[in-house]
Amino acid sequence: MADEARKKEILEKLRNGVIQYDEDACREGANEALEAGLDANEAIFDGLVSGMEEVGRLFEAQEYFVPEILMCADALYAGLDILKPHCRQMDMGIKGSVVIGTVEGDVHDIGKNLVKMMFDVAGFTVYDLGRDVPLEKFVEEQLKTDSELVCLSAMMTTSMVGMPKIIEKIKEKNPDCMIMIGGAPTSKELADRWGADGYAEDASNALKEAIKMVAFLKKLRDEKLKKQ
């Protein structure tokens, strides 16, 4: 185990690397974490994700906008790619897989990719269908992978109206599957009316929701560690 001061220094490097969208710093920090024998999960959560939480705050405060967030996400992935192979498998007591994609008629995928990133971080198995995805593909993929979560994204009003059909079909075949919808034109009312379990109206909101979810997982992990 690395000594505390060194550990703190490395976590700080990862965190700041994300905040300052510095891919090299995140890569370095990740390698240093492994060399120093830091727990990879800890480096991810207390370093990279902690940085992303700050990025979410900066976005809320309108200090950061979407370009910055995209660059921060690149930095996070630079570190994550190195750390991920060293993660203990599912030590959070949560098994999760998610099907995610932008619905047919919509070629925007920025919000979807940010949410995907947080699932990646949380150790979910992510089945990313990409963008402009035909409705049946979501249903098929959910059935094939038995994922507990399906995330549907749309940025245009003109494409979101396909969502209720997908939700209905999935719920019909698998009532336990949770469905999140997201994108600028969506709303809590629409999510309720269409029978979706959650929603996020924009990239920042999606990020926030995803962060909340990951933060919850982190809490579970901490509690579990305390008990050990």
Binding site: E104, D106, T158
Partner: peptide, 15 residues
């Protein structure tokens, strides 16, 4: 562009 010629409902063209 794709005008989704076979779409059942309404889909706007995309690139």
């Amino acid at each position: 562009i794709n005008v989704y010629p076979n779409a059942e409902g309404i889909l706007y063209p995309t690139i």
